[in-house]
Design a protein around this nucleic acid. Structure first.
Length: 872
RNA sequence: GGGUGAUUAGCUCAGUUGGUUAGAGCACUUCUCUUACAAAGAAGGGGUCAGUGGUUCGAGUCCACUAUCACCCACCA
């Protein structure tokens, strides 16, 4: 017999177990002859730092599903990885370098190669930290397949797809307006902007005294680059001017030539109903320019965030803010400014560099989302992305859980513009394009001949992570896994990444492979702190998962993370949840201690003999069914709750206690082993540790590959019901004991009516011990015994005799109960007398009500009789 | 401006197609160190389901409106 310590100590085993699972190859896909596969990919954490609780939650969710499916016999693959996170990582390293005081402008001072070397070092260090953390979480992923978005295979995937898209005309180089971070000196995509509300000023002014009407703007300085004025085509005030061109001199290098154009999107009710059009510095204005190219485009702001010479000699070189003030002064001095008014506006801010983003026209690389794809029936990338979650792409669809996010995704697609994929940071996949004079070649490698220069820019990090669904499976270098596991079975991610990542993965998979990246995707909410705030550096409320693991163990952390989570909704995390979970692991541990100390490790077929045996098996069956159903629907928290309820309330509090009286060693071991299996996906370490003590010949080598439990279609439902009656009787007796403050030594006599007596005597040992009853006798004998006080447990047909009981208090208690029972009976009666109810409600509901009425009436009668006995 | 979600016990949350007297964990109260566990055991108190109106024999559950909170999208310049 192995002696277990009094309390569970996670540190003694976690590391060794993880290594043993890995060494035995259980993390690698194994064919169990089931012929079905389950493949998931880890959302690759950014190599910008360390894992936080959000990552820990994702890994827990992924690992629960993976372990569950593995136990069900699926050939299971869980691929781990890391993301180079282009802009984010470079921004982080640059910030560190500047923060250290050694550099003020790392890009200039170090140059491309040296800075890249520093970033690479940082990324490698971060990567090893992250993988250690993922291991500590217990994630059963296949490390031999570890994928990094910047390694050779993934780089190959990127260049392959880039070339294919270029050939198909979906990637193009164009002069268009883009979001430009002055601080980061790089473009960013629309999705990388955070919109912050702030108060701005809406200026209403006229371009000149001669100009026929006024316009309104919050960006006066950009008016130096206006090339048109737009009005709504239905606006009668301006109809006469549409098509006319006015020349005004506002101080720019050249007088502005303003054509009045009509545009549906102009709101006649806002401002003056007329808008100055600045194609170079506004996304919507640029779109107007695309429709009316004749108006021209005049950039007046440069990459450094300062005014260009085109803005005029007085403005060139000024910052945007300085130019704004100066231009407003000009308007005021010349009596052109009509009004100033505070307005709330949203400004786009770079999420990585933190500065307000300028819109500038530049030569950049784009993915065309609205262009027909050759050989795809005129479908565009947008069409494919929409089809993936609706009609299907070549018969394949992705199902989003919860379904409401499908609408969010649709809406995003509707508003999608061409995707700017070139970035001016250095950390990332370099654009596979080469230039020599006017020549341009798209190629992963330098073309033959001298003088070729590669495009200095890199690709948006989401261009490579968009391929994760297949590049992580080895495509295009090694197609074995790809053929076997693609599309992936499942994916999970947070709400905040639906557009960035899920949409791009769908784009890439549907375009490159004509199918979806994964069949099902589960969206989880954000993890917040106990007060509902987001975890953030600035709030200082971050928690390192490793700290919790150190103090409470991985299983406790995993359980705490998934407690109370529901699909798509945010959840709160608190240390209370961790201690609760830790307490539970200890509970499981101590149940094991009891069983190990009290039973032998033989494994005969478990046979139910007593009513308690039948009851626990029935409850176990129901629990298996419930937990399996919850897991199939990704209801992780509810699955764990159902299991906890069974483990603690049924098994520990009742069956283990009964086992101390009526031993069925084979059965208690069977139930506990089954429990360990059910708990394993949630708490892999404590369950595997305990399994080693319960394993006998014929069981799996380790719990991680043990079969997922199946209901046994337990027999003896009647016996199980009998035990429920006994259990209720005991609870009631205990209730009365507590009510009258009986000490453990005070043991009353239990008198039962004719119905209950046989059952009570049959379970005499259990009742006497668990309810602390002296002895059990028939009611008839009790009546003649002349005891001083009597009590009747509710609806049980039993009396408790003993001089310790307070007759007056007991009478009050019974009267209260009687009133409750009578009210219930009256309610039921009224309902059944309602013809509408009996006629329209389903028959089974009506029958149920009749049963309940009968029960309530019976109980009222019993209580009434009990009161009479009490008086006598 | 458009959209989504939330509102159930002191706290954190369940409540799957409307059908018993609305549940759990924690916290709280009382009792108990009973030889698995005080990180425990036993018993108990506590909510009318944000509000209003509606549909229905029946509403926490469906519909409408209102309130509060949270989030997403959107360069009404």
């Amino acid at each position: 017999m192995t002696e277990l310590a009094k309390n569970y100590n996670p540190h003694a085993t976690e590391k060794d177990l993880y290594e043993e699972w890995e060494r035995r190859g259980y993390f690698q896909p194994q064919d169990h002859g089931k012929g079905e596969r389950f493949s998931v990919l880890m959302p690759p954490p950014n190599v910008t730092g360390v894992l936080h609780l959000g990552h820990a939650l994702e890994n827990t969710i992924l690992d629960i599903m993976t372990r569950y499916k593995r136990m069900q016999g699926y050939e299971t693959l869980f691929v781990p990885g890391a993301d180079h996170a282009a802009v984010a990582t470079q921004a982080r390293v640059e910030k560190n370098l500047i923060g250290s005081g050694a550099y003020t402008n790392p890009r200039e001072e170090l140059g491309r190669e040296k800075l890249l070397a520093l970033i690479r070092d940082f990324a490698e260090q971060s990567k090893s930290t992250i993988t250690a953390q993922v291991r500590a979480m217990g994630s059963s992923c296949d490390w031999s397949r570890f994928a990094y978005t910047l390694d050779d295979t993934r780089a190959h995937a990127v260049t392959t797809v880039f070339e294919k898209m270029y050939r198909d005309g979906l990637i193009y180089r164009g002069y268009r307006v883009v979001n430009w971070s002055v601080k980061g000196q790089s473009t960013c995509s629309d999705d990388e902007l955070e919109h912050h509300e702030r108060t701005g000023t809406l200026y209403t002014f006229k371009y000149s005294k001669d100009f026929p009407f006024a316009i309104a703007t919050t960006r006066p300085e950009t008016k130096l680059g206006d090339t048109a004025v737009a009005v709504n085509p239905t606006d009668e005030r301006y109809a006469q001017y549409i098509g006319k061109t006015f020349t005004v001199d506002v101080g720019a290098a050249k007088p502005l030539s303003l054509t009045i154009i009509a545009d549906q999107n102009i709101d006649p009710a806002f401002g003056t109903g007329a808008v100055g059009v600045t194609p170079a510095h506004s996304m919507v204005d640029f779109e107007m320019y695309e429709k009316n190219p004749d108006i021209g485009i005049v950039p007046v702001i440069g990459k450094d965030g300062r005014m260009l010479p085109a803005a005029g000699a007085a403005y060139a070189g000024l910052t945007v803010a300085e130019a704004r003030a100066k231009f407003v002064d000009y308007l005021r001095d010349n009596d052109l400014l009509i009004s100033e008014e505070d307005v709330q506006q949203n400004v786009g801010t770079s999420d990585r560099f933190g500065d307000v983003v300028e819109v500038l026209p530049m030569e950049q690389w784009f993915v065309a989302v609205n262009k027909p794809i050759p050989g795809r029936d005129n479908k565009t990338l947008k069409d494919l992305m929409r089809d993936a979650v609706h009609d299907g792409v070549d018969g394949a669809t992705t199902t989003i859980t919860p379904a409401r996010f499908t609408k969010v995704y649709d809406h995003w697609i509707d508003n999608l513009r061409d995707w700017c994929i070139s970035r001016q940071v250095w950390w990332g996949h370099r654009i596979p394009v080469w230039y020599r004079g006017d020549e341009m070649v798209v190629s992963a490698t330098r073309p033959d001949g001298d003088g070729w220069e590669q495009d200095p820019d890199t690709l948006d990090t989401w261009f490579s992570s968009g391929m994760w669904a297949f590049s992580a499976l080895g495509w295009p270098d090694d197609l074995e896994d790809f053929r076997k596991y693609f599309p992936n079975t499942w994916m999970q991610m947070g709400t905040e990444i639906i557009f960035f990542w899920m949409a791009r993965m769908i784009l890439m998979a549907t375009y490159v492979h004509g199918t979806v990246p994964f069949t099902d995707v589960y969206i989880h909410g954000i993890l917040r702190d106990r007060d509902g705030r987001k975890f953030s550096k600035s709030l200082g409320n971050g928690i390192d998962p490793l700290d919790i693991i150190k103090d409470y163990g991985t299983d406790a952390l995993r359980m705490a993370l998934i407690s109370d989570i529901t699909p798509g909704n945010d959840a709160r995390f608190s240390m209370d949840k961790v201690t609760d979970a830790r307490n539970f692991t200890n509970k499981l541990w101590n149940i094991a201690r009891y069983i190990l100390s009290g039973t032998g490790n033989t494994a005969p077929a478990p046979i139910a003999r007593t009513s308690a045996d039948h009851w626990i098996l029935a409850r176990l069956d129901a629990t298996i069914t419930t937990v399996t159903d919850h897991l199939e629907h990704y209801r992780f928290a509810q699955a764990a709750t159902a299991l906890r309820d069974f483990t603690w309330n049924d098994f520990a509090d009742w069956y283990v206690e009964v086992h101390k009286i009526e031993k069925n060693d084979a059965l208690i071991r069977f139930v506990f082993r089954t429990l360990l299996a059910l708990w394993h996906p949630f708490m892999p370490f404590v369950t595997e540790t305990l399994f080693a003590h319960f394993r006998t010949d014929g069981h799996a080598a380790m719990l991680i590959i043990a079969p997922w439990p199946q209901p046994r279609a337990a027999q003896g439902a009647g016996d199980a019901e009998t035990f429920v009656t006994v259990k209720n009787l005991i609870t009631t007796l205990r209730n009365i004991r507590a009510l009258y403050r009986l000490t453990p030594e005070q043991k009353p006599v239990l008198a039962c009516d004719a119905d209950l007596y046989p059952l009570a005597t049959e379970h005499s040992d259990i009742i006497r011990r668990l309810a602390r009853v002296e002895r059990i006798m028939p009611e008839a004998e009790a009546a003649t015994a002349g005891s001083a006080a009597v009590t009747t447990p509710r609806g049980s047909g039993a009396l408790l005799l003993g001089s310790i009981i307070d007759v007056a208090a007991e009478r009050a208690r019974l009267e209260e109960e009687l009133a409750t029972a009578r009210k219930l009976a009256a309610d039921k009666q009224a309902r059944l007398e309602n013809e509408n109810f009996t006629a329209r409600a389903p028959q089974d509901v009506v029958a149920k009500e009749r049963t309940l009425l009968a029960e309530a009436q019976r109980r009222a009668e019993e209580l009434h009789n009990a009161l009479n006995t009490l008086h006598a």
